[in-house]
Design a protein around this nucleic acid. Structure first.
Length: 978
RNA sequence: GCCGAAGUGGCGGAAUUGGCAGACGCGCAGGAUUCAAAAUCCUGUGUCCGUUCAGGACGUGAGGGUUCGAGUCCCUCCUUCGGCACCA
């Protein structure tokens, strides 16, 4: 019958699937669509890098392929697509260095990576393939951007609405504009103190009274996509802004090691912060790993507290420009207001300039300038030593009218809260350190519990004889918290707080917040760590913004019918480099003069195109929607098609199928490296589309699964130099260098070129075949766990596939075990057990134990020496999701002329799984003393009798009284004796 | 520092609700087949004590606890990995 020729078999069936379109899944509006339950299963699509696939990619892809194939056999319409996230810096960098257009590099990389993916025989519907760099695709990325540009976040509706609604409301007078100097409508989420002090009722201006360009600017500030001057990591030498991830700890660029500066630049922003609460609350409904949810919650970083206004001393507090007179701070601990002994402004705070006294001006200016040249990372890395400068100005603490000094220090960030804090050194670690460094006073206002005092109190106390009486500990803490080595940051009862003394922290917070509100000095406030999304890059290889800047009309959107706005043809992709940190940014697109100069879609006068491009995340924010309807030229995705694949189930069907109550993608698999950014950005875009009525559910990914990282062994010699596998001999006790014989150190590390521990899937497939590769990666361990690749283990699963082959087909030396006779009963029983176990394990994504179960079954067959045809015909479909090529071949050799991809998953009979006898472990005082075999339905007395008949059990019980008998049916029994 | 995950043979890893620790595979040892090797097949394989057959003790990162019974639950600690990091 021939041997298991995996190379031939895999080639044959991959060609078959392709020719027959086996895995093409029709949409509801297609003629050959069959109405069945749906299952949308998605992989995080890859970036087509020049290095191709590494072994981590096929891990997730194999897992989803197993589930997809299983679901097809269970009668689902399965949507299982694949595509490419192909915009990005490496292709552009390559273009700069080699003069090859990024489009060509990308096309070549896609071709290579697709060849690799296809080697594995995944059951993707390739007719739905997309790449984010195709104009047909990014046309719709631009289209969604325009939707954001043309929307605002309506706090009343708590949803994104068309910008026309805001304009209507302004013109109708439902909303107005305050006279703070800025164009700010009456909206709850501003930080400008428009009700800050009594007697300052700023008159509101009717929108119509504003000048035309003021009206326009006001509207622009409320769009979901807006331009703002924000601090960025600016690298003049690279000519681009960098994300924090692209900046090293030394404040240099990751690429090229050039200096990076903090700089305010006008950039595109997306108003993701408006969705903070919804992004947070939505998490509760999702079937995601709890750890990922926690990471997103931390990233959003919601905290509750109060905004409190401090008046700058010497100012009246009444002014037409109030923010110059009042410092608003955010605190989560308004209960510590009486402990505020100084204030701190961030160096970038607009008030610094205003309040600094002449004596302090030089020092403050110098400090602010220095801080500007530090990167965010630098500032946060230097945690050891606090720095700061006194402004010379004072503020009045609203609760006790105390005059406290105002400092500038870079431990306060402009980006969080209000960029200003009240410092309570006794109860905040950072303030404590700062106060110690600059000898600022402290006041204890929260009384810690006695355990804390006992453990942390200074030893010896200022007067050693005090230490005898704990009363003195308390007195000492209340009067001298600075004698402690750390701050007490927990909750407790109030002291030194006037009328609030003895209140608990929680009660104090409540009461003081109410008091602040009544007196117009502050109010309850919520804060988030989440920032609006910096959405522009100074690069070529990204989606161009469909935006034109017109001198008359300002920022103007292209009409939808002008999309896609394609990238201009260029030869030189180098951004203008400079050594001068103040040189203005000049992105590559600045050189495409023909392309830049255009006419304004609104007024027709000459205008210029936006020359920034979108960041790499843009295309991946919505690709799962394009897969639904990839060829649609009218809309990004037909609404009926979207409903079929994504709509949350009705309540009734949610009960039947609780796994996807929230709707969206039924299973999304990928690495945990996207735990926050990609998954948060996508959820944000999806919610915008949901608000605007383009998608039917609030969340894109109903169920998420994170695969663990595959790492591998790395070898280093004594000097710490990495040694590649071809030079390592691992056959002995310790790994040694093949040529020098030197003993090498072994560690498990992330695969990387520099560690010389990268495993190439092409080689493994060449030697053992795709089915073996798939099986090995699934057999390594739990999908979610990180685990080391060990090529030495691969032959194990390969051997198993050979055994399966011999079992059904035999080979030159051995007969097949296939028989015409009625199947062996033990084999039959084992088969039913396998069908049950494999089905359950696939559902639970426990593929390693499913494979172990198949191995056990095959071992049973070999022991029995025979398998009937009907048994083989039920085993092969179980194998099929895991090793589809081999399974198809065996299926054909069993006499079938069609692919088994849509054969029903075999049934099992529960009654066959129940044994009539049970083997029970017998314990005496919890120690194993023997095994007995009893009828499955044996009574307790009979079991105990049988147990006592066991010599070893009898010996252990000998001469003692049985005080307790425990029988766990089908498992064990325990005799407690004395 | 904070948050999260995880520590089980020589290795990767199994182990419903607490119920026979080490399934399955690798490696290793012995044997069969072979002129020989590869491949394949069979047997054994947690550690220690015990002369064989027995048999016994110990054993899931460390220490304590709950329980008839703990890899699994609780407390304290250690180590590794992942994320965040002056977030007021």
């Amino acid at each position: 019958m021939g041997k298991y020729d995996f190379t031939e078999i895999e080639k044959k069936w991959q060609a078959y699937w392709q020719e027959n379109g086996t895995f093409i899944q029709p949409n509801p509006d297609d003629v050959d669509f069959a109405d069945r339950p749906k299952y949308y299963i998605l992989d995080m699509f890859p970036y087509p890098s020049g290095a191709g696939l590494h072994v981590g990619h096929p891990e997730g892809y194999t897992a989803t392929d197993i589930v997809a194939r299983h679901k097809r056999m269970k009668g689902f319409n399965v949507l299982h697509p694949m595509g490419y996230d192909s915009f990005g810096l490496p292709a552009e960098q390559y273009a700069v260095e080699h003069g090859v257009h990024p489009r060509e590099t990308t096309a070549a990389n896609i071709a290579n990576i697709e060849r690799q993916i296809k080697m594995f025989g995944f059951s993707y519907d390739w007719s739905r393939r997309v790449a984010t760099t195709e104009p047909d695709y990014y046309r719709w990325t631009q289209w969604i951007f325009l939707k954001m540009f043309n929307s605002w976040y309506d706090p009343d509706a708590d949803a994104a609405r068309p910008i026309e609604e805001l304009i209507d409301k302004l013109f109708s007078g439902a909303l107005a504009v305050d006279a703070g100097g800025n164009v700010v409508p009456v909206a709850p989420y501003d930080r400008i103190p428009n009700i800050s002090l009594e007697g300052v009722a700023y008159g509101q201006v009717k929108f119509q009274k504003l000048a035309l360009d003021q009206q326009r600017r006001l509207i622009d500030e409320y769009r979901l996509a807006y331009m703002a001057e924000v601090p960025v990591n600016w690298c003049p030498k690279l000519g681009t802004v960098l994300s924090n991830e692209e900046v090293t700890n030394e404040g240099k660029s990751d690429r090229g090691d050039w200096p990076v500066y903090r700089k305010n630049l006008k950039q595109w922003m997306l108003r993701i912060t408006s969705y903070s609460d919804r992004l947070l609350e939505g998490l509760d409904e999702l079937d995601w790993p709890e750890s990922i949810k926690i990471m997103q919650r931390n990233w959003i970083g919601r905290s509750e507290g109060a905004d409190v206004d401090f008046v700058v001393d010497g100012s009246t507090g009444v002014s037409p420009v109030p923010e110059q007179e009042v410092i608003r701070v955010y605190t989560t601990r308004p209960d510590t207001l009486f402990g505020a002994t100084y204030m701190v402004l961030a160096p970038e705070h607009p008030l610094v300039e205003q309040i600094t006294t002449d004596e302090q001006r030089d020092a403050v200016d110098g400090y602010v300038k220095e801080a500007a040249h530090k990167s965010e990372l630098e500032r946060t890395t230097e945690t050891k030593q606090k720095s700061g400068v006194f402004t010379g100005a004072y503020a009045i603490n609203p609760v006790n009218d105390e005059k406290i000094p105002i400092w500038v220090a870079d431990y306060v960030m402009m980006g969080y809260g209000t960029g200003a804090i009240m410092a309570v050194p006794a109860h905040d670690e950072r303030d404590f350190e700062f106060a110690k460094a600059f000898s600022l006073p402290m006041r204890a206002v929260v009384m810690p519990d006695m355990t804390w005092i006992q453990q942390k109190r200074p030893k010896p106390m200022p007067k050693p004889e005090w230490d005898r009486d704990p009363e003195n500990w308390i007195k000492n803490y209340i009067s001298k918290p600075e004698t402690y080595s750390i701050a007490f940051t927990g909750e407790g009862t109030a002291v030194n707080s006037d009328r609030y003394d003895r209140l608990t922290t929680a009660e104090f917070k409540k009461q003081v917040t109410e008091w602040l509100e009544e007196n117009g000095l502050g109010r309850a406030a919520v804060n988030y760590k989440l920032r609006d999304w910096l959405f522009s890059r100074q690069r070529y290889w990204g989606e161009p913004f469909p935006i034109v800047h017109c001198e008359k009309c300002g920022t103007v959107a292209l009409d939808e019918d002008q999309l896609p706005l394609e990238l201009p043809e260029m030869d030189d992709f180098t951004p203008s480099a400079s050594d001068d940190p103040d040189a203005p940014p000049a992105p590559p697109l600045a050189k495409a003069t023909d392309w830049i100069n255009t006419t304004c879609p609104s007024c027709g006068s000459p205008a210029k195109r936006e020359i920034n491009t979108m960041p790499q995340w843009a295309g991946s924010c919505w690709y799962y929607l394009r897969f639904l309807d990839p060829k649609n030229e009218k809309i990004f995705c037909d609404s009926d098609v979207e409903k079929y694949w994504m709509k949350p189930p009705s309540e009734e069907s949610a009960i039947r199928n609780p796994q996807s109550a929230i709707g969206g993608i039924d299973l999304y698999v990928g690495g945990a490296e996207h735990a926050v950014l990609h998954l948060l950005y996508s959820r944000f875009w999806h919610k915008v589309l949901y608000d605007l009525g383009y998608v039917s559910g609030p969340e894109p990914f109903g169920k998420l699964f994170n695969q663990g990282m595959i790492r591998s062994y790395a070898y280093r010699d004594k000097r710490g130099v990495c040694v590649g596998y071809e030079d390592v001999d691992t056959s002995g006790d310790k790994p040694v260098h093949k040529t020098t014989g030197e003993v090498l150190s072994e560690s498990i590390e992330k695969m990387s070129k520099s560690l010389k521990n990268v495993v190439n899937p092409d080689e493994v497939i060449g030697e053992y075949g795709a089915d073996t590769f798939r099986l090995y990666e699934m057999f390594m361990g739990p999908l979610e766990a990180s685990k080391p690749w060990n090529t030495r283990d691969v032959p194990g699963v390969h051997r198993f596939l050979h055994r399966v082959w011999r079992m059904i087909c035999g080979n030159e030396e051995t007969q097949s075990l296939l028989t015409d006779k009625v199947g062996d009963e033990k084999v039959e029983r084992a088969l039913h057990k396998l069908i049950k176990k494999a089905g359950e394990d696939i559902k639970a994504m426990k593929f390693n134990t499913a494979i172990a179960a198949m191995m056990e079954f095959v071992n049973v067959v070999f022991k029995a020496g025979a398998i009937s045809k009907t048994q083989a015909e039920r085993f092969v479909p179980v194998l099929a999701p895991f090793a589809p090529h081999l399974a198809e071949e065996l299926w054909q050799r069993l006499g079938h002329d069609k692919s088994l991809a849509y054969e029903p998953w075999p049934e099992y009979n529960e009654s066959l799984l129940v044994e009539d006898t049970a083997e029970l472990a017998v314990q005496v005082n919890g120690k194993m003393r023997g095994l007995i075999t009893v009828p499955a339905d044996a009574a307790e007395d009979a079991i105990i009798e049988a147990a006592l008949a066991e010599p070893k059990v009898a010996a252990a019980v000998e001469g003692k009284t049985i005080v307790k008998k425990i029988v766990v049916p089908g498992r064990l029994m325990n005799l407690v004796v004395k």
